[in-house]
């Protein structure tokens, strides 16, 4: 299964350190087109300006949390289908459950790890393909 390495990725995190680390990691994995946003509102603005193929957002952010961003995205037609990877601080099942029901594609625990990140991205796309290949009734 081929993942388009040129795809547009939006990374949302209120920590500047995390944002730069994320961009670097993604670049090393072969994804050059990474846009950064420092909070939910900025993220929504950027989503209006351009089409993204993947959103990676931190769960804990001030004002608009990662899950709230997800919900807003799922409400709108244009952003409903965009794959969303939530980055969680520690295993809080309550919040992850909420995210799953709100339509998150997958989640990843901090800290950012090269191998884990690649595995999660691959899994997101693999699952989408599995869904497409289900025989039609």
């Amino acid at each position: 299964m081929e993942i388009d390495k040129e795809m547009n990725i939006l990374v949302v995190d209120d920590s500047m350190l995390i944002r730069s680390v994320a961009k670097k990691i993604l670049k090393n994995l072969g994804f050059p087109n990474v846009t950064l946003a420092d909070d939910g509102s900025t993220a929504l603005e950027k989503l209006n300006e351009q089409t993204f193929n993947l959103v990676i957002a931190d769960m804990n952010m001030p004002e608009i949390s990662g899950i709230e961003l997800l919900k807003k995205m799922r409400e709108k037609e244009e952003t409903r289908q965009i794959p969303f990877l939530l980055v969680t601080a520690e295993e809080s099942q309550d919040e992850i459950m909420t995210a799953i029901r709100a339509g998150v594609n997958n989640y990843m625990q901090k800290p950012w790890n090269v191998k884990t990140l690649m595995a999660k991205i691959e899994r997101i796309y693999q699952f989408e393909e599995e869904k497409r290949n289900r025989p039609k009734i």
Partner: peptide, 24 residues
């Protein structure tokens, strides 16, 4: 509680990725 909740979600349909749920 966490366990049963994850189990319920796992068997609840084919919308959610089972691998993701199992990681919980």
């Amino acid at each position: 509680r966490n366990y049963y909740r994850a189990l319920q979600m796992l068997f609840s349909g084919n919308l959610f990725d089972p691998e993701m749920i199992i990681s919980m």
